[in-house]
Design a protein around this nucleic acid. Structure first.
Lengths: 196, 196
DNA sequence: ATCTCGACTGAGTACTCAGTCAGTTTCGGG
DNA sequence: CCCGAAACTGACTGAGTACTCAGTCGAGAT
């Protein structure tokens, strides 16, 4: 089962950098040192490789997020949101390829016709949003976060805010590191309960 | 000059929906009712069409944003930011195809090697960010926006926040309309000056 | 020693693609 | 009406594409 893993790893690398359609199979075989036939011995077709990557993505990233979630923080809900932002940005950097794939059109297009793909994407996004949401709910309970906001919706907005930083970095648009502290402070002002 | 325009329009439609690599020329010719040769009579190659779309995008969207900017608002800077968010979301909806192209990997990849592409993207993003920035600066001057924030950085964050809503809609992830009022309020809390 | 079987190979297949080109049509000015 | 140029055509090319398949290989079971 060595070559199968190598193929999956190389495919993740290439799909992330060049996109699905712009990655020919022969490049995949060249990179892994396997014959093209071997790839089709392990996977039904090119799309099968992509689905395997998504499954792998779900099976490696989600447990890490769940693990993170279990580490009970003694901080306020507000601070938990900030920590989650840091953790998300950290993960997006260390698992660069996987997040790059999530920022391409291909998975979402595939999701329209492929239920498995749709389910995986849903699981991934739910995991992301749920963590932010539960931190916000905790914050509303402990008084650190404004009570008037709708937790789920604000979770989506915070997630979008952070994820757009990932997009900025991916497309070489802006220096995200330089924005980090402003991002954290913006988010804090956005969520914190009225100071008066 | 009728067919050239038709080709450009169809290419914008197809590139936005299927992506650059997944749009074959014969589909472009079928859609416009022109021979494939005609396309290459008007454009040097496929990439030439893409660059023409980007130029067109710059020449149609930026003037609309500049026009919007000139309409002097009598509101506070903070309200101007909110209006700009609405305007951006409105534009992203009415010019769906053009914004879809900006949310694909292709232009950014091309920008690495093609200076013209790089310049166009820079002009577009600068325009977006500048509008937010000047509204924030105005808000800091009139006291409606917190004085401690860095206008440019916050402009980037607000832009990222709004643009991520566009991404949500494009990828069928979440219902952006339902998030609108929460987005506006979040942004207001994020920017407004201390109530005390 | 022989058989079995899963992993692997790479030349081959049928097809698609961007781009070309020799030729035809359209059109405006003389 | 004619002429030249511009616009347009679609059959064609050759490079590439995903995928196939007949067959090799080596390790373990009989």
């Amino acid at each position: 089962m060595k070559k199968k893993e190598r193929i999956l790893q190389a495919a993740t690398y290439l799909f992330a950098r060049k996109g699905y359609s712009d990655t020919p199979m022969h490049e995949l075989s060249k990179m892994t040192g396997t014959a093209e036939g071997t790839i089709f011995y392990h996977f039904k077709n090119k799309q099968g490789i992509f689905l395997a990557i998504l499954e792998d993505l779900k099976d490696t990233i989600l447990p890490e997020f769940e693990q993170y979630r279990k580490v009970e923080s003694e901080n306020t809900g507000l601070d938990m949101v900030m920590e989650t932002i840091s953790f998300y940005l950290y993960m997006a950097k260390s698992r660069e390829d996987l997040f790059a794939i999530l920022h391409q059109r291909h998975p979402y297009e595939l999701a329209v016709s492929n239920a498995e793909c749709r389910d995986i994407l849903e699981a991934i996004y739910n995991c992301f949003i749920d963590i932010f949401e539960s931190a916000i709910v905790a914050g509303q309970a402990d008084g650190s976060i404004h009570s008037a906001i709708v937790a789920r919706k604000s979770a989506l907005i915070v997630f979008g805010m952070v994820d757009s930083m990932v997009r900025f970095r991916m497309n070489n648009l802006y220096d995200v590191e330089a924005l980090y502290s402003e991002l954290i402070e913006s988010c804090r002002r956005m969520l914190q309960s009225e100071p008066c």
